[in-house]
Design a binder for these strands. Structure first.
Lengths: 162, 162
DNA sequence: CAATTAACCCAGTATGTCAATAGGTTTTTC
DNA sequence: GAAAAACCTATTGACATACTGGGTTAATTG
């Protein structure tokens, strides 16, 4: 019943990229520093985001990553559905390649698990990265800092506790 | 995002006891045999159900376990909330004894996780053990067996794929 | 009262996933 | 051609989960 670190980190990357969505390429090193996450570990996570066409990477000097769409066009479900490794189905017999349970037609709980999977999907599909950015901005405004520079730093690190 | 085996087994025990809810004491050995689960492993699971007052056990000859309330008075949430070991909170910072995150007031996602936890709880609180028994009976009726004895056996094992 | 039965208790293991690390290769820019 | 950064492969350590084994206590029964 826990969301994995991988999924949370992926969200943090997306929010970080949303906060620095200038069109320029953002280095993974910078994201890792801001988010205080191991760069090496982030590599694997970002890779799945790239292969699932959630963002694009560019190699070489001045390379990095950037969003492919607008923050409002990513749902939270988009991200966690590709990063949650052990598949999202709440029980094993609903997984993709699972061999069909011999008692599936009579199982009293299968529909409960299926429905719950749908509830999960619907809930997280209604929240977009833009919503999280708005929430961050709103909270930042509600907690004003004396120094504008401090505010900027603060906002750039806001997704640290995702 | 997976429910643990422990939680599913606990549900199977409760449904099994509901199917044999005669007032007599049901031996764990019989439940384990019907459900094809290791009796030893079930011990630990049943223990938490007893300590949480979901069922009662009686020692000695002719002892066993039985429900304390009617099947309609147990919600699925009642069961999985005590058996899901790693606590039910979708993220660590929402756990019971978790040290409060220093950025909690500014965290853009904490409310998303909190709300999702509530969605989970509400969903599983609306489903009772009686609902699962009804579902089982309905499916049994929809898949009639030639032999009445076979039907009885079949119903008694219905929760096998929980 | 003694034998049997079944819940109860405590300790240990094995497997597997998750989180993280390490080192190297390719691509691009300047 | 040197530097920078994404990309690739593999391995490790820690921890939880699922499961096993052996023994103790309490209740029934002949």
């Amino acid at each position: 019943m826990k969301i994995s670190t991988k999924g949370r980190y992926a969200l943090r990357v997306m929010v970080d990229l949303g906060l620095h969505n200038t069109g320029d390429w953002i280095r993974l090193k910078d994201i890792a520093t801001r988010q205080n996450i191991s760069e090496k570990y982030l590599e694997a996570i970002v890779k799945t985001l790239v292969t699932n066409s959630l963002l694009e990477g560019k190699r070489g000097k001045n390379g990095g990553y950037r969003l492919l769409r607008k923050p409002a066009e990513y749902t939270v479900w988009d991200i966690i559905s590709v990063t949650e490794t052990g598949e999202l189905a709440p029980v094993a017999c609903l997984e993709e390649g699972a061999e069909t349970c011999p008692m599936r037609n009579e199982c009293p709980t299968i529909s409960m698990w299926q429905d719950f999977g749908n509830v999960e999907r619907e809930y997280f599909s209604k929240i977009t990265i833009q919503d999280l950015l708005d929430k961050a901005a709103g909270k930042a405004a509600a907690n004003p800092k004396a120094d504008p520079a401090e505010t900027a730093l603060y906002i750039s690190q806001l997704s640290a506790c995702l």
